[in-house]
């Protein structure tokens, strides 16, 4: 198989992760934030798989599977929350959801 430098793969993973992070930081819409979090999780999985490939071990892929499971659970709960928020506040603006603010 072809030779790919591991740092390249990790760099791509970092770029994806940071794009996701930028999304979390810049978007006010809570749905977009969830999407961005998915991107970040995916990037983390990519890093795991790359590491597993480097050592020719299945552990990286196993980890990716767990991340996948976690992402699925998180997305289902997160989306349910998004729906509740929409129903109750009629808004997607995360800045409006600051009930935990210290008065």
């Amino acid at each position: 198989m072809a030779v790919v430098n591991i740092d390249r793969v990790l760099f791509v993973a970092a770029v994806l992760f940071l794009l996701g992070l930028t999304g979390v930081l810049t978007r006010k819409n809570i749905l977009f934030m969830l999407i961005s979090i998915e991107i970040m999780l995916n990037a983390a999985g990519l890093a795991f798989v790359a590491a597993g490939s480097k050592w020719h071990q299945p552990d990286g892929q196993a980890m990716f599977l767990f991340i996948l499971a976690m992402a699925a659970a998180e997305v289902s709960v997160g989306l349910a929350l998004v729906m509740q928020i929409w129903h109750q506040h009629k808004t997607m603006d995360v800045e409006d959801l600051n009930k935990l603010k210290d008065e």
């Binding site: 198989m1 030779v3 490939s53 071990q57 299945p58 196993a62 599977l65």
Partner: peptide, 16 residues
């Protein structure tokens, strides 16, 4: 450099 080798589903399944 990464010497790629296919990690088969079988390996993954056994590990899991």
């Amino acid at each position: 450099a990464l010497q790629l080798a296919v990690v088969t589903p079988r390996q993954v399944a056994l590990s899991l």
